[in-house]
């Protein structure tokens, strides 16, 4: 286990270094003297050195340090991703297990394909439509909602964005579970255990469920990627200030220092989730994760 964890930690360190290099390259694009391959390489190296010294430059839009700009916006995005992720696990895990049963999987296959084929922005707009017409919430997709409207709490303002992120996350969670179950269903140990006299339920509970959960844990990075992508769309659709929304605005206005920092942070968080997921998967499946 320790050897595995050390190997994964090494991968994480290299991944984080790579993320910083990418961010330095993106940040160098905005430098006026970085035209041509050699000046660009020099600018990227210079930015990499700055990043190592934790100098992330200034936002071209606000003029504030990029790090403090990110610190002001990141908590909102992390809260959105966190609550959306919780919802995703709450909905996606039971669905994933249900659809992993072969008869249910075949029957539900077209329906799950249809639901997961809905792009996140379409889901967001559909949720907004439902919130307005069915729940009569004053949700706006054209301008930032006025917080004063919600005298009895911020729930109606936050719920559509959380539901949108949760929808995307649930699709990723159930897909990861089904994938792990699909891999486990072909394993030779099932036949062997059946011949040894174990009931189907015992085999599922003792051997299959841990492997499927390990598969889910191993997909943590992939699930977080889908949550971040959904957060970009949800913040844009529902006009919620956050790091994901800031990223879109930064690229549109060519604020490359800000965009680079946000990409680096998202990549670092994804790599960290992947690392923790792999360790958890290794522990759950006793070194035999699918």
């Amino acid at each position: 286990m320790l050897e595995y964890a050390a190997r994964q930690a090494g991968r994480l360190a290299l991944g984080l270094l790579g993320a910083v290099v990418i961010a330095a390259a993106v940040s160098a694009v905005g430098m006026p003297h970085a035209r041509g391959p050699l000046p660009f390489l020099a600018a990227a190296s210079h930015r990499l050195f700055d990043f190592v010294r934790l100098d992330f430059g200034h936002s071209a839009i606000s003029g504030l340090p990029a790090a403090s700009e990110l610190a002001a916006n990141l908590p909102a995005t992390l809260a959105l991703v966190g609550t959306g992720g919780f919802l995703a696990v709450l909905v996606g895990v039971p669905l994933g297990f249900l659809f992993s049963i072969s008869s249910a999987r075949r029957a539900a296959a077209p329906m799950t394909q249809l639901v997961t084929a809905v792009p996140v922005f379409c889901a967001g707009l559909a949720i907004a439509y439902g919130a307005v017409h069915l729940l009569h919430w004053p949700v706006s997709v054209n301008a930032a909602a006025d917080a004063r409207i919600f005298a009895d709490g911020a729930f109606p303002m936050a719920a559509p964005a959380v539901l949108t992120v949760g929808f995307a996350g649930a699709a990723a969670v159930q897909l990861a579970l089904r994938r792990a179950a699909s891999l486990s269903s072909g394993e030779a140990f099932r036949t062997g255990l059946k011949r040894m006299g174990l009931s189907l339920l015992e085999i599922e509970r003792i051997y299959v469920v841990p492997r499927v959960l390990a598969g889910l844990a191993a997909s943590a990075g992939e699930i977080l990627l889908s949550l971040f992508s959904a957060a970009v769309v949800a913040e844009w659709v529902f006009h919620r200030p956050g790091a994901a929304d800031l990223f879109v605005k930064s690229v549109a206005l060519e604020d490359w220092n800000m965009a680079a920092l946000i990409v680096a942070v998202f990549a670092a968080l994804t790599l960290l989730a992947e690392f923790l997921g792999r360790i958890a998967a290794h522990a759950i499946a006793h070194g035999d994760a699918p």
Binding site: V21, G221, L225, V232, F266, T270
Partner: peptide, 12 residues
């Protein structure tokens, strides 16, 4: 190297 790019959402 490519794995690092895979850790950034494709949309971004």
């Amino acid at each position: 190297i490519i794995g690092v790019f895979a850790a950034v959402p494709a949309l971004l």
